[in-house]
């Protein structure tokens, strides 16, 4: 599944949006982790970006250092980790803890992430036509570096609602269970998928 030839290089400093996107372009199955066991597996797999979806946000520094030591970048979901609120202070905490990218559904948090100079990933929750409309309006206002669409597996069916309004790379996560799903989502226009299934990390 690797699409590029540039390979992964260790990154000790906060990475820019271009570096995150480049790594996802090279290995378009991002490793999403919700447990220590998944993290261990992710550190041994090719994807250059690890998406941290669970954990103690207040004690996340050591986890992020391990991710960096493995030569990978860390994107942390502000809304899902414990202990932090989805506001400017929560964003600043994650930035100081070493997050290379921060994910949130909240426009205020996304704007704060951008102000801190790290990659901002805004989630758009596709529940209905109205929620897509609201999500895309929020994206146009907060101007994230990357958008992540959930549930990602439906991207081929809603691409006409989303892609014409996007000017930044798109990720797709949620219910992507096999290679066929990955191919369909990438074909529909996603830069990469995020998945908790280790079998897909090695594609």
């Amino acid at each position: 599944m690797r699409r590029g030839t540039s390979g992964i290089k260790p990154q000790s400093q906060v990475a820019g949006q271009n570096e995150i996107a480049r790594r996802l372009s090279d290995f378009p199955c991002g490793a999403a982790v919700k447990s220590e066991a998944q993290l261990e597996a992710a550190l041994d797999c090719p994807p250059g970006v690890v998406f941290v979806l669970r954990g103690d946000g207040l004690e996340i520094g050591s986890m992020l250092r391990r991710i960096h030591s493995a030569g990978k970048l860390a994107a942390v979901h502000l809304d899902l980790v414990d202990g932090l609120s989805s506001d400017i202070s929560g964003v600043r905490w994650l930035v100081r803890s070493g997050a290379d990218a921060i994910i949130s559904s909240h426009s205020q948090a996304v704007r704060a992430v951008k102000a801190e100079g790290v990659t901002a990933i805004q989630r758009v929750l596709c529940l209905s036509e109205l929620s897509v409309e609201h999500g895309m309006t929020a994206v146009s206002r907060s101007q994230p570096d990357i958008v992540e669409l959930l549930p990602g597996v439906i991207l081929p069916q809603v691409a006409d609602l989303v892609l014409p309004r996007l000017t930044v790379p798109l990720l797709a996560g949620g219910f992507i269970r096999n290679v066929k799903d990955v191919d369909a989502v990438l074909e529909a226009g996603a830069l990469a998928v995020t998945t908790t299934d280790p079998a897909l990390w090695n594609l």
Binding site: L127, S128, P151, V153, I154, F175, D181
Partner: peptide
């Protein structure tokens, strides 16, 4: 179930 589209994608 929302979105309804997801039903066909579930295991």
């Amino acid at each position: 179930l929302s979105p309804g589209l997801i039903l066909a994608h579930l295991a």
